[in-house]
Structures are given as C-alpha cells and as structure tokens.
Amino acid sequence: MKISFRGDYALKAILDLALHYDQGLVKIQDIARRQDIPLKYLEQILLSLKGAGYVNSQRGAKGGYYLAKEPKMIKIGEIIRFMEGPVSPITCVSKSCYKKCTEEADCVFRPIWDKIRLMTEGIVDKTTFADLCRKYEKKHHNQELEMYYI
C-alpha cells in the first residue's frame, strides 16, 4: 500500500504550476528546486502530463511550463489515476478495471474494500488543485503569523 514517487511528484508539479497560475511561465528548474524533485525525473513526468493535456510548455530562453487548464478544473483523482492507475484497492470493486470474482456474492471482505474505494474516491474526486492551493496558502499564512508572534 504505497504511493509511488511518480504520483507524488506529478501532484507536486501540478500544484506548483497551480500556485503560479496566471503568473506566466514556470521554469522546470524552479519546480525541481522548490519541490525537491530530481530534474531528469521531473522532465519525464512533465512530458507525460503534457501528453495528457494537463500542462503546456513553451521553448526558448524564457520558456517554461504552464497549466493547460484552470486549477479548479483539475481534480487530484485524475492525476493520481493517470500516474498510478486505478484508485480502487482491488479489482472486484473497481469501476475502471473491474474483474469478476466467483466468490463475489458471499465474500465478507468485499463490502470493506468497497467502502475504502468509496471513501478514497470521495476525497480524490472532490478535491481540485484550486482547493489544494487555498489550503496551502492558508497554512502558509498561518505559519507566517506564528513566526510573527514568536
């Protein structure tokens, strides 16, 4: 039960671009530095994300990456599924990669796996990158206040 670096980095890259949405192009080096992602790995990830239409890039000395969609239009579930595969814990309760199991009808575990799937989807299909930006900015703001008071 693990989230891979690939998924985590993709989410971080999109969120970094979302935090700089409407502020022009973002250099890949800046994302790598801010998010602590190896540059070569980040290049591959951004290339996949570009292929899927989530980000765009512009070449040249002043080039960089930008989000192809508004942050509020991208749900984190889309990115997790794209990078990590289905979010369902097991195929017998999955919508996208469902595989029939002969013991489905009287399996005592299936309701639990289904509950996990439902609750996971409840989070990832509800949260957009705009929500994460708001949370981040709020947290950041509080941290600054804390420092001020100390």
């Binding site: 039960m1 969120l15 639990i112 989070i123 994460l132 981040y136």
Partner: peptide, 20 residues
C-alpha cells in the same frame, strides 16, 4: 512542513485506517 502533497496522502491514509 512545506510539503505540498503530504496533507492529501495523510487524509487518504486516515480514511483507509479508519475503515479498517
């Protein structure tokens, strides 16, 4: 402290553990 994605994973982690 600065990690952007940890809150998301922590939330998912808590949901799964809660169900179990």
């Amino acid at each position: 402290k600065e990690c952007l994605t940890r809150p998301v994973w922590v939330e998912l982690h808590e949901v799964v553990n809660k169900v179990l």
